[in-house]
């Protein structure tokens, strides 16, 4: 933790999400081996504290190496985990408040950073901007707040794919590259009512 530069340090929620992904998907042992191998000096991240930016980069590289995956694949898997794993149910619900359909949800993406700050005021989230090219064709600009942030466009792809599933919508998602801190994600809606999707009961408060 860097007291003096708190506002530029990585929010614990980011590291906590990576930790949750590894622990819940690959087991506590894998997480334990990873933290020991990387000599992180932390066995567990606190969601409400801040950590050095460098720690997050080291952690992500370590996870990719441990799982034998590319870094962007890991980021995408984390996005999927955040929507589909029962331990992240609270987040899935918060995201589903964005709209009654996946299309409505897409239209609410621009508000997502403000919504996130309502919940956690000091959380730095990417700026999101949806452009509509056709009713079923969009591109999403993902602007990282700091250069230290991992490329969150890949996380958004995993998250959007899982969420489309949640709404029962069939989508095609593609990462169109990164320039400086901006990434572009292309979104095509194939079938709005592809499957039944998962329930979202407004009254069933999670947790």
């Amino acid at each position: 933790m860097r007291e003096a530069t708190m506002e530029r340090a990585m929010h614990g929620l980011i590291n906590r999400a990576i930790e949750g992904f590894v622990r819940d998907s690959y087991g506590r042992d894998t997480w334990g081996r990873l933290t020991r191998r990387l000599a992180l000096g932390v066995a567990e991240f606190e969601a409400m504290l801040h950590y050095d930016d460098a720690l997050t980069a080291k952690l992500l590289d370590g996870v990719a190496e441990q799982l034998g995956k590319q870094r962007h694949e890991v980021l995408e898997d984390i996005g999927t985990y955040l929507v589909s794993h029962p331990n992240a149910e609270a987040l899935r619900r918060l995201l589903r408040f964005g709209g009654g359909t996946f299309g409505e949800f897409l239209q609410s993406l621009d508000d997502l950073p403000a919504r996130a700050r309502l919940a956690v005021p000091d959380l730095e989230v990417p700026r999101l901007e949806l452009r509509e090219h056709a009713p079923d064709h969009f591109s999403l600009s993902v602007q990282a707040p700091t250069a230290a942030m991992p490329p969150l466009g890949h996380v958004m792809i995993g998250l959007l794919r899982a969420l489309a599933d949640d709404y029962g919508t069939l989508v095609l998602l593609e990462h169109r590259g990164r320039r400086a801190t901006e990434e572009i994600v292309e979104i095509r809606l194939l079938e709005p009512d592809h499957a039944a999707g998962r329930d979202f009961d407004l009254g069933a408060r999670a947790g």
Partner: peptide
């Protein structure tokens, strides 16, 4: 919960959904 309402039951301008969101976000 009592009336099994969904987001479609509220006027587009109603802040009910935002309020529900906020309550859950704050609880989390």
């Amino acid at each position: 919960g009592d009336f099994a309402l969904t987001s479609g039951d509220f006027a587009a301008t109603d802040l009910a959904i935002e309020m529900l969101y906020l309550v859950e976000a704050k609880s989390a």
